[in-house]
Design a protein around this nucleic acid. Sequence first.
DNA 1: AATGAATGAGGTTTCATTCAT
DNA 2: AATGAATGAAACCTCATTCAT
Lengths: 198, 198, 198, 198
Amino acid sequence: MPRTPQENERIRQLAKESILKAAMELFIKQGYHATSISDIAEQAGISKGLLYNYFKGKEELLATMVDARVGEMVEVMNQAKTIETPVEQLKHIIEGAIDNVYKKPEVFRFYLHLQTQPEADHELIKYSRFLIEENARQFEFQCEIFEKLGAKEARKRSLYFSSTLQGIMLMICTYPQQFPIQEIKKQIFDEFCNSLSF
Amino acid sequence: MPRTPQENERIRQLAKESILKAAMELFIKQGYHATSISDIAEQAGISKGLLYNYFKGKEELLATMVDARVGEMVEVMNQAKTIETPVEQLKHIIEGAIDNVYKKPEVFRFYLHLQTQPEADHELIKYSRFLIEENARQFEFQCEIFEKLGAKEARKRSLYFSSTLQGIMLMICTYPQQFPIQEIKKQIFDEFCNSLSF
Amino acid sequence: MPRTPQENERIRQLAKESILKAAMELFIKQGYHATSISDIAEQAGISKGLLYNYFKGKEELLATMVDARVGEMVEVMNQAKTIETPVEQLKHIIEGAIDNVYKKPEVFRFYLHLQTQPEADHELIKYSRFLIEENARQFEFQCEIFEKLGAKEARKRSLYFSSTLQGIMLMICTYPQQFPIQEIKKQIFDEFCNSLSF
Amino acid sequence: MPRTPQENERIRQLAKESILKAAMELFIKQGYHATSISDIAEQAGISKGLLYNYFKGKEELLATMVDARVGEMVEVMNQAKTIETPVEQLKHIIEGAIDNVYKKPEVFRFYLHLQTQPEADHELIKYSRFLIEENARQFEFQCEIFEKLGAKEARKRSLYFSSTLQGIMLMICTYPQQFPIQEIKKQIFDEFCNSLSF
DNA sequence: AATGAATGAGGTTTCATTCAT
DNA sequence: AATGAATGAAACCTCATTCAT
């Protein structure tokens, strides 16, 4: 007697997830190039053949990861949009970004690594571009916040803000042990979330 | 008439440089993994065999690049040390860093990419570490500057400054076309080089 | 109320036929190697597993096809044997062969392709041999016809006839659009079915 | 000291030829699909890697073979064109074709096998088409001969002739041991090279 | 100092077949 | 009778590196 289609679908979903989880772990730990399909299959506890049953190849695994990542980023932004005052929005963004990186610095590091892919690497540049585009969308949203805050040159101020926040995230993922996040949060709050600064 | 040993050495140096130049161009344009030894030899106009006469392999080319990069960074720092006032030192660091990235964003992008290598990529992590250590050394120097400036919590202030500067550099190399560097320089100057800020 | 054994067997036969039909369509269209078991199962609208319930594997499908083909060939020959005069027999053979190829050139082409399999392809050579043997049997029958026709060297004349007929069939399946079968039939009739020719 | 470019070119040519020879032997003996790159490399006495240094892959080996084959066919036709009388031309074509197949039936069989590839086998159909086109060109030339011979319906007569000759070749490569080529040559000569036949 | 032919380890991918359900 | 998830062997291909010349 065959399994029901629902049961099969459930198995497929579980398998896809477990493969993707294995791939994410290894990509993040060792990097994309240093991870082979064999590694992933082994980590997921399945055969290489089965992996190809679920994903076209290594690149599709990365694509799926990046899609999920962008999905999370969008979700965080949408959450922020529901907040009432612009100051609170900004605080939420800052807290969210910093805590997120602080909790899993190697994850942020992985995507930053991907984002800084050279332009002429034809295999991977699309994922880099995709992440950069999403960052740009987030930047537009932050511009709106600065406008609401009444900043004189909202766009430039927002750019400076984004640079600072990105820089903090870069520093955290580079020196994860030693980063005093509370102190740094205080400084960025003081600079950008205090009405006196405009 | 055979060449003198000195002459021979000079020729060797020239050859090494031309190979290294070829490797740098390709690594920066396409990335380390997407560049093959054949590509490099072709770009340098020599045979694969000769390349191995000068460098142990692809990795040594990268090592040499990174060494040179760190050398440049040290030099810039030493230059800054000769400047008299701390404010001028800071301005010099900022100007130098931003102009440098702005002129060749893809170069900074390449080293940032290398720096964000996952920890468990045994082949490349040493180069990442080397760059990070040099960054840390630069950070120490900047701490001293902030101390001289009389900042209350010089270390934390310096960390925040570094984050901001690194963030700006990251943004420039990510959006090289659209970055208003003058405006951003003004903002970072205003914040960190103005005595009122402490 | 369970099915009777006969009923079950009938259902099995129908299923086998529908699978075989799917396999034949795909083999003939794309060739044996370019057709996967998955393709066949999909085309037949069943699962891969069920296919293995009916056939041992891809090769058995081919074996069954070839058996059926040989069966048809035998039947055609038997039909011809019921005809009274040798001239009519020959005409019937010619008409049958040419019309058959003309109607489905890709089918004849497929079996000719199989027949020309290299001798050392262990997987497929048996089917090639089987088809060739049946051709040989047909040849023997044609020899008899030529003997009855009173040909001086019946065997050689028959061999020449077979060559001509096979050649026509090869040409038709190679240039299916442009082949003037009526004209060609006339020529082969004139040459072999006219008593003056001996 | 490096080899001279000429010496290298010679080595390359020899290597290419020996690889191609190995591939041809195996393709003809076992068929294209039953022959792996490893088989070919082993037969040629080289590593797999080196094979890829000379040929893009298995398909390029086939392409090179087919090119060479078509080249030979063209050459034979050109030779025939230098002959004075049409009857002699026709005799030359017949003799050449039959002797050729008789000497190496498995070679003709291989190309006939390729020619009968199903239309939808995307990997191999181009080679089939290429051979068929060349056959068509030969057919055009034969038409001219029949015109010169004063055949009433030269094109149809030529088509019938081609069919007969192709059929003989097919029979020879199918029953290589038992084919009485002299007798068959006599029959085809009698039919097509004798002025009384028109 | 210089070449590029040659190697082989290591990766990716396909697919006929099995088997738990 | 029926499914399709799962396997694994065997194919393809790439490229850093070596070495005879």
